[in-house]
């Protein structure tokens, strides 16, 4: 399988995840919105680690920063850390059941949120409610099994590698 075919599927789905982040939600739902870009990125890094890796994570992190109006590099830093952890452990995460995977995803999302929280604090933009700030890690983990199945179907439909 060549890389170009892989990117033709991965890049549109990643752009779609950026749109999910930008999608307007009612006020009460803001705190629950999962970090779609990170979830999508984790999936692709786990499914195709030889094509989707750190550089792509960094670029989409920067795009997320621009989209959300945060300081440039904040999400990029968190996303690179998460994808690094995924690349170190993807062989182990892959064989776990969906529920166990969701737990790992929770830890990964929490690590990213804590890192971005720390950066926000450093530049003097710390959120007022820390619990609400960390809530997306829970919703992200809860949504992971469904997201996993949808993305796996997309990957199989375009016959990108048959593992996982």
């Amino acid at each position: 399988m060549q890389a170009s075919r892989c990117y033709r599927v991965v890049v549109p789905t990643m752009l779609f995840s950026l749109m999910l982040v930008l999608l307007p939600l009612p006020e009460w739902a803001h705190a629950f919105r999962p970090d779609w870009v990170t979830l999508f990125m984790i999936y692709w890094a786990m499914a195709m680690p030889e094509f989707v890796g750190l550089l792509m994570a960094w670029i989409f992190g920067l795009l997320l920063d621009v989209a959300q109006g945060t300081i440039l590099g904040q999400h990029a830093l968190g996303l690179v850390l998460v994808i690094w952890l995924v690349q170190m452990t993807y062989l182990r995460i892959r064989v776990a059941s969906l529920i166990q995977q969701a737990l790992v995803i929770f830890v990964l999302l929490l690590a990213k949120l804590l890192l971005t929280l720390w950066v926000s604090g450093l530049v003097g933009q710390a959120p007022e409610n820390i619990t609400l700030y960390l809530l997306p890690s829970v919703t992200g983990a809860l949504i992971w099994p469904w997201l996993f199945i949808v993305l796996r179907d997309i990957r199989r439909r375009y016959t990108l590698t048959n593992r996982f």
């Binding site: 960094w58 920067l62 300081i71 440039l72 590099g73 904040q74 990029a76 830093l77 690179v80």
Partner: peptide
Amino acid sequence: VLLAASVVVM
């Protein structure tokens, strides 16, 4: 390298 790049950008 990329983490360092992120910090520089920030």
